[in-house]
């Protein structure tokens, strides 16, 4: 295995394009090094992007949104007070990934590129309407996060393409998001199911809603029909139980070592309902 530490994104992409064999980008390394250890993926070339200037920065754009560098760690996100206040659901999704040790290293982009349907930070990004900046040999492009996962362990990224940053839209008043997952322990588990909800309100009524379900299909999925249940409502108990049933209905989970399909279908509704309630309260400014 050859290790590269380029000092610019262009150099990183150039190395990738000129290298043969399995080429992987390295940011936090919390997935890549595990794959290396257990022997599931042994890259021939590893391109460490952490020494590229700006890659570990969070910046506020002129349009009021945030740009998060590809190697920004979970701990950096949590420590960013403004970002955490505006996008608590997105930040808590990332914060749920692994231990304090993992948080020092793991990144949103890494979690996304790993392609797991159970990735904790991805539902929050999709619910937020986030996009990624992708660099390839022909230039840069912006792609919605929801278009990146393509199946279990796979993404729509082409060979050599590099995500350089994540872009969050501007946050307005009376908006709120939340992410909740279900795990058997209190920490250190992979989500059995997860759900992110992002809401905008007007006079207490939900005007737009995004609902994203994790670990109940081959990839993290947008649940449009479930979100539709919420729009135009004030989230009373009837609505919540309809919403819950809808989430369970559209979930298409598999049975595996982390839970049976039946159990996942059961609890995705419960978790989604709790996440919706939390997002709604946040949009009202309750916490």
């Amino acid at each position: 295995m050859q290790y590269h530490s380029p000092s610019s994104f262009n150099e990183a992409v150039a190395i990738s394009n000129s290298s043969s064999g399995l080429v992987k980008y390295l940011a936090g390394g919390t997935d890549v090094l595990v794959q290396l250890k257990i022997g599931t993926k042994s890259p021939d070339h590893l391109i460490d992007i952490k020494n590229i200037p700006g890659v570990r920065e969070i910046s506020l754009r002129d349009d009021g949104g945030y740009t998060i560098g590809a190697a920004v760690s979970g701990a950096q996100l949590t420590d960013h007070k403004e970002l955490s206040k505006k996008w608590p659901g997105l930040v808590e999704g990332m914060e749920l990934v692994g231990s304090a040790q993992i948080q020092s290293r793991a990144t949103l982009v890494g979690n996304l590129c790993n392609g797991s349907p159970a990735a904790d930070s991805v539902p929050g990004m999709i619910a937020a309407g986030a996009s990624v900046s992708i660099l390839n040999s022909s230039g840069t492009k912006d792609v919605l996060v929801e278009d990146i996962p393509s199946g279990p362990g796979s993404t729509s990224l082409k060979n050599g393409e590099l995500i350089t940053a994540i872009n969050l839209p501007k946050r307005n008043d009376y908006e709120g998001d939340a992410y909740l997952r279900f795990i058997p322990r209190t920490e250190m588990d992979i989500a059995v199911v997860g759900c992110a909800v992002n809401l905008s309100l007007e006079n207490g009524f939900i005007t737009t809603a995004k609902v994203v379900l994790g670990a109940v299909g081959p990839k993290v999925m947008l649940a449009h029909s479930a979100a539709d249940c919420l729009v135009g409502t004030k989230l009373d108990d009837n609505i919540l139980s309809r919403f819950s049933a809808k989430c369970s209905q559209i979930a298409k989970p598999i049975s595996d070592k982390r839970g049976s399909a039946e159990f996942r279908k059961d609890i995705i509704g419960v978790i989604a309902q709790r996440a919706a309630r939390k997002a709604y309260d946040r949009a009202l400014g309750k916490y």
Partner: peptide, 25 residues
Amino acid sequence: TGDCGACSCIFDGNLVSSCLVLGVE
């Protein structure tokens, strides 16, 4: 694999699992 914490070190001021950091880093 970063699950047990027995290899914890401080790496440039941050708590890490040293099994999930490459030596070259």
